[in-house]
Design a protein around this nucleic acid. Structure first.
Length: 953
RNA sequence: GCGGGGGUCGCAUAGUCUGGCCAAUUGCGCCGGACUCAAAAUCCGGUCCUUAGUGGUACGUGGGUUCGAAUCCCUCCCCCCGCACCA
């Protein structure tokens, strides 16, 4: 049977048995695991598969630990990408249509994709199909899509936001967005021809008072106003004079338009030439001096405000501009400037940038050998370096008055706020780089009024959320510091948008709730999703949600919604049974947004008993060590992989790709060979059903103990979601031991063979469920393997293992010696076990050992020597010396326990003579050192407890 | 720059928290052998150097702590992820 057929068979059986349709059961502990729903603008890929596999393995593992498990799944459709993509299809854009074609969609289907709803129908269905074929243990009855396309969910989100508003978790503010002036719309990343990732950046607009107007200059470094020496304009450029509010401003020609979008009242008055400004003097903000306007080449009337305030101490551009002008009296003459006056302008030190000094810009320019202001590349680099350096290391000098001694980072905010308060500056936004919209227009920044924010920066709310985090179980432990950091750093989140799919803000139809904000507590919705599914919009009253998810009155809810009160109570009970969720499995990229948001919203919406119990985070899947991407050609959808390799191979190899926070690395070569391994296991199980001897063999006990020990370790690993470790132990390591067992015992014992098969089957069931089910049934067992207990084992009894370790060690040593000696066909091999007195010596050493296992040599020698036969006294001293100085350190602490019980080495090795003979095909002799032939004396002396001397000939 | 995670024997991974059973796990690859007319599959053995075994070197670099360091501390170098309004 090919893997797909086998998998289909078991998937059908699971479905028929309704194995994953979870219902509350009061007599059983529950376990609720979930994972963030995927965004539905494409098929599920290997990256999704990894996270969902982890959730599925937990789900299956917990079922085997006798938990009543709920694992639901849903689909995210909120936001702009689907709408934007649909719009592109509608406009017939080639790139978008090709992308869909590449996914294997038919032409007719693609046509329908001009409607966003079609996306939300097609992809969820396909995702369900893919995940079913992947063998996930999901309760599909509870699935849903988000947005207003699903009225019950829509109602749930409206209910949530009403509660958030009432609880004062929402605040209003303004917010800068990227704006297309042509289309008059917000421009997200997917609406851009170029400039992806560019965002609005805050500048401080400084106002320089002149006789009847202000010059306007934008700066990113308001704290440097203390060092202003002059202004720069583009002498060849043209500027605009405009009335802004009650003042008259001079600025670049494009700026009035931008100012309007940023909430200013602007009326253009006329033009003014840059050259007319040169030589004029203006009152500089903060320093209260008049400074002169000078011409520069780097200053461009079309960028920003077109006017720059000059701080030569800390800006390489400004410094170089000044030097250039001071080096050229002819230029000064050309612009009608007083050369004397120009040369008198000098940089003013305002902040200490550590090793860069208090006048870093002049220093840098000289060091870099910058000749003039047209060396843009060097100057740009110098500016970047200096900007970061000063920001991180700079301390304001005494001359800066109220910010003296403060780090630049703090001073910047203080100075900015003060200037704004005094009316000497305003906030202004520019983009971090040029952005061109799909509608072929250059984008600008617009300030949105009335923007709603979730107030994640609220101290009180954060405190409660931190408390919630404290009680949570995090996988891996390492993730905690990351979460702690995020919670204290998280800022307010703009939670509504002007466009895109989603739920409308209940109290303002013009806003749609944003996609990271409508997905914070929906795990609660899973508990009753299958009941709410059929309700109509009129029934979806606030009171109903209050009654199910809170302490709302069920009678009132029944009256308002028309749902029977008993039903509502049942739903509430189901919510209370499953909630809170025990584990949410996600990629690590969601720590800083989604998972943290989810935690915040839980503390806002629910009581402490409903706060999340666990987060598990994992890395991003790499393929052959490289990031998966369509352009690299290493992009795999879940669907193509399961149909190529089968679900279990994909699960097995993904599980083996990694665990913890590291990026898991999926290897194709392993996927190619893993199928064979699974198949081999099946044939092994089939072939060995009921086989084995009924007589006992000394080695049986050893293997039983090994099985228990491996199972014990695997169970502990699985408990911490380390399923790779678990699989390695059970599927790779245990079989190694089994091989050894077979080598030693020829035929396994019937009960032990059965136990071995059972342990491996149950152990790998969470990872490769189809193979495990098949093997379970092949081995003659009844029922689903999923209903069996996961093997737990126990810690091994070392005494039962030591003897076999001796045989193993001896075999390895013998092999090593033979190969080094170059003997292919030995005639005789003699194992010379340590004499009694060496054992005694070791025991005595064990008794004398301190807590670290250390032994004082002198003390040991004096204690042991009397017990050593006189003929061996010299050897004895040598042995003790070596034992204490060499062996004990390498054996490690607690070395004594290994030797505590003296095993009869001669007997153990003698019992294994047949075994050794079968391997080396020669005479095997075991002797005690006391009886060894004198011809072997030099070897004999090497013997020590558990490490016999070996003589080959 | 800030925050987080890393750098291990061809490749990939375990080990690091809790220092010594660590020349170091496991998979892939490679080499040799068995089986076979042959191949595939499977099985056995090997895969740092040296050596009739318990010796040397080695876990990014350079120091330190310790009887003892892949593991703890410090320096430096390098790689990955995030720094948001985007799902």
């Amino acid at each position: 049977m090919n893997p797909q057929a086998l998998e289909k068979k078991w998937q059908k059986k699971w479905e028929e048995a309704r194995l994953f349709e979870s219902e509350p059961r009061e007599d059983q502990d529950k376990y609720f695991v979930n994972s963030p729903y995927p965004y539905m603008n494409g098929y599920l890929h290997l990256g999704h598969a990894f996270t969902y596999l982890r959730a599925d393995m937990v789900s299956r593992y917990q079922r085997m630990k006798n938990k009543n498990v709920l694992f639901p799944f849903a689909f995210h459709c909120t936001g702009t990408p689907i709408v934007a993509a649909a719009q592109r299809v509608k406009e017939g854009e080639k790139g978008q249509i090709n992308a869909l074609k590449q996914m294997g969609l038919s032409k007719t289907l693609i046509k329908t994709f001009s409607k966003p709803e079609e996306w939300t129908k097609h992809f969820p269905d396909k995702a369900i199909e893919d995940l079913k074929k992947f063998g996930t243990s999901i309760d599909w009855r509870r699935s849903f899509i988000t947005t207003s396309l699903n009225p019950p969910y829509d109602g749930f989100i409206r209910w949530q936001f009403n509660k958030l508003l009432a609880g004062e978790y929402l605040i209003k503010g303004t917010f800068p967005v990227v704006w297309c002036p042509k289309r008059e719309t917000v421009v997200g990343d997917h609406d851009r021809l170029s400039g992806e990732g560019e965002t609005p950046q805050e500048y401080t607009l400084l106002k320089f008072k002149g006789e009847d107007h202000f010059l306007i200059a934008a700066t990113l470094r308001p704290e440097t106003v203390f060092g202003q020496t002059n202004l720069w304009v583009d002498g060849d450029g043209t500027y605009t004079k405009a009335k802004v509010g009650n003042e008259t401003w001079v600025m670049s020609q494009k700026m009035p338009f931008k100012l309007k979008l940023q909430g200013h009242k602007v009326k253009e008055l006329g033009k003014i030439q840059g050259r007319d400004l040169i030589g004029q003097k203006y009152m500089a903000p903060q320093i209260g001096n008049e400074i002169i306007v000078l011409p520069s080449k780097f200053c461009d009337a079309s960028i920003g405000s077109g006017i720059v305030t000059s701080v030569p101490s800390d800006s390489p551009d400004d410094y170089q501009g000044l030097v250039d002008l001071q080096n050229s009296s002819s230029d000064c003459e050309k612009w009608g400037l007083d050369y004397e006056l120009v040369t008198s302008v000098q940089p003013i030190a305002i902040l200490d940038s550590g090793e860069m000094g208090t006048l870093p810009a002049p220093k840098l320019c000289k060091e870099l050998g910058i000749k003039n202001q047209t060396q843009r590349k060097k100057l740009e680099q110098a500016k970047q370096d200096l900007y970061m350096h000063s920001f991180n290391h700079g301390i304001m000098l005494d001359s800066t008055e109220y910010v003296a001694g403060k780090p630049v980072e703090e001073a910047r905010e203080i100075v900015k706020d003060k200037l704004i308060e005094e009316g000497k500056a305003v906030i202004y936004y520019e983009l971090t780089g040029p952005v061109e919209s799909r509608w072929l227009a250059d984008c600008v920044v617009k300030i949105v009024d009335n923007q709603w924010f979730l107030e994640y920066s609220s101290e009180e709310w954060t405190k409660t959320t931190e408390k919630a985090l404290e009680t949570m179980e995090l996988y891996p432990f390492k993730a905690r510091s990351q979460f702690e950091y995020v919670l204290q750093w998280l800022k307010n989140w703009a939670c509504v948008r002007e466009k895109g799919l989603g739920t409308k803000l209940p109290w303002d139809d013009n806003w749609v709730i944003e996609s990271l904000s409508d997905s914070t507590i929906y795990m609660a919705y899973y508990t009753v999703a299958h009941y709410l599914k059929d309700l109509n919009e009129k029934q979806l009253k606030e009171s109903l949600f209050d009654a199910i998810f809170g302490d709302g009155n069920t009678k009132l809810a029944a009256e308002e919604s028309g749902v029977k009160q008993a039903e509502i109570i049942r739903w509430r009970n189901e919510f209370n049974y499953w909630y809170p969720y025990d584990l949410r499995v996600s990629g690590k990229d969601l720590i800083q947004n989604h998972l943290s948001f989810s935690l915040y919203n839980h503390t806002a919406m629910f009581g402490e008993d409903k706060w999340p119990r666990g987060f598990a985070v994992n890395g991003w899947v790499l393929v052959e060590g490289e990031k998966m991407s369509k352009s690299k050609g290493n992009f795999f959808t879940l669907k193509e992989l399961t149909s190529k390799y089968g679900a279990d191979v994909v699960r097995f190899t993904l599980c083996n790709a990694g665990e913890g926070l590291d990026d898991p690395n999926w290897e194709i070569s392993f996927a190619e060979t893993a199928g064979k391994k699974l198949k081999n296991w099946l044939s092994f199980v089939k072939k060995n059903k009921g086989k084995g001897r009924t007589t006992t063999h000394p080695i049986d006990t050893w293997f039983r103990e090994i099985m228990a020990s491996i199972a014990h370790q695997a169970n502990a690993a699985s408990e911490r979601l380390k399923f790779r470790t678990s699989t390695r132990l059970l599927f790779f390591e245990l079989p190694q031991y089994f091989k050894w067992y077979i080598q030693r015992a020829d035929e396994p014992h019937v009960e032990i063979l059965k136990e071995y098969i059972s342990i491996v089957n149950r152990g790998i069931a969470p990872i490769v469920p189809h193979t495990a089910e098949e093997a379970w049934s092949l081995s003659g067992e009844e029922d689903f393997i999923l209903n069996q207990p996961f093997p737990e084992g126990h810690k091994p009894d070392l005494n039962l293992i030591t003897g076999e370790d001796l045989v193993k060690q001896t075999l390895e040593d013998t092999r090593a010696i033979l190969s080094i000696a170059g003997i292919d066909n030995p005639e005789e091999i003699v194992f010379i076990v340590a004499p009694e007195w060496k054992w005694n010596a070791v025991h005595t050493a064990g008794e004398l050992a301190d807590s670290r296992g250390q032994v004082k040599l002198a003390q040991l020698i004096s204690g042991v020597m009397p017990t050593i036969p006189s003929e061996s006294k010299k050897l004895g001293a040598d042995f003790l010396k070596k034992w204490v100085l060499k062996d004990i350190p390498s054996l490690g602490p607690d070395w004594q326990s290994k030797y505590a019980q003296q095993v009869d080495e001669a007997e153990i090795l003698s019992a294994s003579v047949d075994f050794f003979t079968s391997i080396f095909n020669c005479k095997i002799t075991v002797v005690n050192a006391d009886q060894a032939k004198s011809s072997m004396a030099s070897k004999t002396n090497q013997s020590s407890p558990l490490r016999p001397a070996i003589f080959v000939s």
